[in-house]
Design a protein around this nucleic acid. Structure first.
Lengths: 194, 194
DNA sequence: CCATTAATTCACCAATTGGTGAATTAATGT
DNA sequence: ACATTAATTCACCAATTGGTGAATTAATGG
């Protein structure tokens, strides 16, 4: 009758914690809050987790691993530089919209381990490489690659801050709008030329 | 010999608090930290301020008032819809780069009063109106105005998150890159037409 | 049934922190 | 000098919170 394994129970904590961190912020969520949400004393939390830092770390690491894996798959299918960057952007937005803990992880206010921060930097670097390849191929504007990468990622990340599944627009629509904005900006391309 | 008025002393606290909030975050800055930075006991803080909420509120409100005033001035000079939106964007980026407390205020994690939140919404609405005027005039792409406004502002705000005055690029360069990205996106305009 | 291990609770500690009351010192006008 | 007010300090409270030790209950295998 005891249905859940140790790992499954951990998963339970993980999901609840991710949701609460994202709703109230890391500092505003106590270990007791997390445990209480599952009907437990906070000591139970410490039975499954070493400390508060460990769980937020794991939320972050899983989110980053997921988005990286999906990016692998996406990039395998695209070969033209502009298409690759566009696909990476759409993958990022999609990930953030689907799994809110990813947004929380990427924007969070907690202090991560150096290792985790390096993971974040590595992901950013993947993007910057796509940008640089695009510039080299002449399909991406010749702006400072680092700044351009930051700008693109900030657009992608921002949707996580306010998107609600029951909102006016579907996640597909939002993805389309933001990816399109990142690619073309707000200005009407003067089709008349010049 | 006592050189500072009550108001001037308040200003002192205001500046220090703004800097600390922005460096460490609101929750991670104690009232004692703020007072200690000025060589005071924390009780002195409470001599000049009602509570912690009051000072963060005032930081936010001043920042918002400043950026609104500057936007007034900027918009008085521009009349063509595209130029107005572009000028508003540059004004926003410039403000965020110059006064770091504005970035902190716009991105902060504290819980604001309803009144303050309304101020924030009003500022966003000004932007959205510029976007809508641009769409009506055919100089801004016909994307969902609200989403487009969010996307633009998220780009503008993001610079506040990592800009350091002693960094590789000047604030003018950053402003140019981000405003340009917001307007045109990352994709090379295929000058070949189509 | 019993011994062992897994899971959970209770009561507590220590540190931090927002905030306060009462007393003390510095400045000021008269 | 002196009374008054402005400015500041000290000691403290109460609440929150991350984390722990010891005991207790539930599950399990022999």
């Amino acid at each position: 009758m005891s249905e859940l394994s140790f790992e499954e129970r951990r998963e339970l904590f993980l999901n609840v914690a991710a949701r609460l961190f994202e709703e109230r912020g890391y500092k505003n969520t106590s270990v007791e809050d997390i445990a209480a949400e599952l009907g437990f004393t906070k000591k139970v939390f410490y039975y499954y987790w070493k400390n508060k830092q460990e769980i937020v770390q794991e939320i972050h690491d899983r989110g980053l691993a997921l988005i990286n894996t999906q990016l692998d798959a996406v990039l395998e299918r695209e070969h033209e530089p502009a298409a690759r960057l566009d696909a990476a952007i759409r993958n990022h937005i999609r990930s953030v919209l689907r799994d809110r803990s990813i947004a929380g992880a990427l924007l969070g206010d907690f202090d991560f381990s150096e290792e985790t921060l390096e993971g974040r930097r590595a992901y950013t670097r993947r993007f910057q490489e796509l940008v640089e390849e695009g510039i080299a191929a002449g399909v991406v504007r010749d702006l400072d690659p680092k700044m351009l990468t930051f700008a693109i990622l900030s657009v992608c990340n921002s949707v996580g801050g306010w998107y609600r599944p029951d909102g006016r627009l579907s996640s597909e629509e939002i993805q389309e709008i933001f990816a399109s904005f990142a690619a073309e900006g707000w200005r009407t391309s003067s089709t008349g030329g010049r």
